[in-house]
């Protein structure tokens, strides 16, 4: 089963339930007392998920490690490598100096 099919399956199950409740094929007293809530529930769910996604992505963006140490260490190692390579007889292109 491809991911697309998995999503379509889950989606159609949810839509089926939603329509069943909406057309009162299934009785549920809460739904009967709050028809508006049921009607808008898919949109509410999408908005809530969107907020969740936004919060997660922003949190992860702000906590993304900056790897400053790794960058500083690399700069040192580049110098080290250049000295060592020159000793081994490697000729760096002249434009760099």
């Amino acid at each position: 089963m491809t991911k697309l099919l998995e999503w379509l399956t889950a989606f159609s199950i949810l839509v089926t339930i939603w329509i069943a409740l909406l057309t009162k094929k299934v009785d549920n007293s809460f739904v009967e007392q709050h028809p508006q809530l049921l009607l808008y529930s898919p949109f509410i769910a999408i908005i809530l998920f969107g907020l969740f996604a936004l919060a997660v992505v922003l949190y992860r963006t702000f906590t993304f490690n900056n790897a400053e140490l790794a960058a500083a260490e690399l700069q040192k190692e580049i110098q080290e490598a250049r000295t060592s390579l020159t000793k081994l007889g490697y000729k760096f292109p002249s434009k760099l100096s």
């Binding site: 991911k3 992505v57 922003l58 992860r60 993304f64 960058a71």
Partner: peptide, 24 residues
């Protein structure tokens, strides 16, 4: 793990794209 030399926009795109991929 982490990245160096990325600005906010680049990080945001990276994280957003990653989130979407994980989800789908």
């Amino acid at each position: 793990g982490g990245v160096h030399g990325w600005d906010f926009k680049r990080k945001l795109i990276s994280r957003g794209a990653n989130f979407l991929t994980q989800l789908l």
